[in-house]
Amino acid sequence: MSNRRNFLKGVVAAGGAAVAATAVTTRAEARETRQRPPEALGLLYDATLCVGCKACVAACKQVNNNPAEFSTVDQLWDTPLDTSGKTFNLIKMYRSGTMETKDTEENGFAFMKTSCMHCADPSCVSACPVSAMTKDPKTGIVEYNADACIGCRYCVAACPFGIPKYQYDSPTGKIGKCELCRHRHKDGLYSACAEVCPTGATLYGKTSDLLVEAKRRLALKPGSTAVFPRGNISGGKDQSYENVVGNYLQHVYGEKEYGGTQVLKLSAVPFQKVGMPNLPPEAAAAHSENIQHALYGGLMMPLAVLGAMTFVAKRNVKHDDADGDDQKGEN
C-alpha cells in the first residue's frame, strides 16, 4: 500500500518534471515580438490636421465597393457609427464640454481615424485557425482571404483595436477590414483615404518614411507655420502645402505599441481619450504563442501525460489468472 502510494507520487512527480523540462527548453527558444518589415507600408494620421470632412470614409467605401450604412431615420447619407463588415474606415469625434476649441482635452473636440493599424505582430493573424488572415512578408499589409475564411470570428475577438468585423446580416458573411487598398497597388494607385485627404491628415507611404515625418512634426514649434506633405510621401508628385503646427503630444502612437504598427498616429488629445488603447511594446500574439508552443511543442506534454497514464494503467492491471497476495489486495 505505502509502496504503491510512493510509486504513484513518483510517477506524478516524473510526469510533472517532464512537462516542466519541456516548458523550460521550449521557452529558451521563445519567439520575440515581431518587428515591421523594412519595406512596410502604412499610413500616418495626424489628428491636428484633420478637419473631419470624411472624404476618406467616402473614398474607402467607393474603392472597396461597400454600401452605405445608415444610422439616421431619413437615411439620406452614409452615416455609420462604427467600423463594420462594410465600413473599413471611419473618422470618429472626441467631444468635451462646450467643444469650443479643436484638439483640446477640456471643452474641446478632436478627430480620430479608426481603421486597421497593420500591426507588426498581429493578433488576428495569430488567432486565425485557417490562415485566412495573413501578413505580407514584404509590405507587411495584414491581408484577408475570404475564400479560406470559415467565419469563426476569432480575429474579431483577438484584435486589440477591434478592427476585423464580420457581416452578421449574411448567411455567408465575410470579415471586413482595411487592407491598405492593396487591390489598387497593381494599377500604381495607393490607399484611397490618403489620396483624397485634402489636408494630408492621412498620409500614405513606407512606415519608415512616415516615422521620420512624424518625428519632424513633433520637433516643430506649436503654432508656427510649416510645410506638410499630402498623398504619398514615398513617391508621386509633391502636393505639400503650408499649415499651422498643432499642439502635439510627444508620442507617435504605433511606433512602439505591440512591437510597432504600420499605421502611425499623432494627436493633441491623449490617445486613450480618442479611442486608442494603451498597449505594451510586446504583442499578445508572441505571448500566447509562446505559452501554447511551450505546452505542445514536439507533442511533449501530451506524450508525458500519456506515458504517465499508461504507467498508472499498467500498474493497476490485475489479471484474472493472477494468484497469490494480489487476490487479497485492498482493491
Partner: peptide, 19 residues
Amino acid sequence: VRFVFGLGAVTNLNDGYPW
C-alpha cells in the same frame, strides 16, 4: 432563419460580442 438572414438575425451577435 440563420441560413437566410445570417447569424445576427438569430443570435443577436455583433462585433462587440462576436461569440
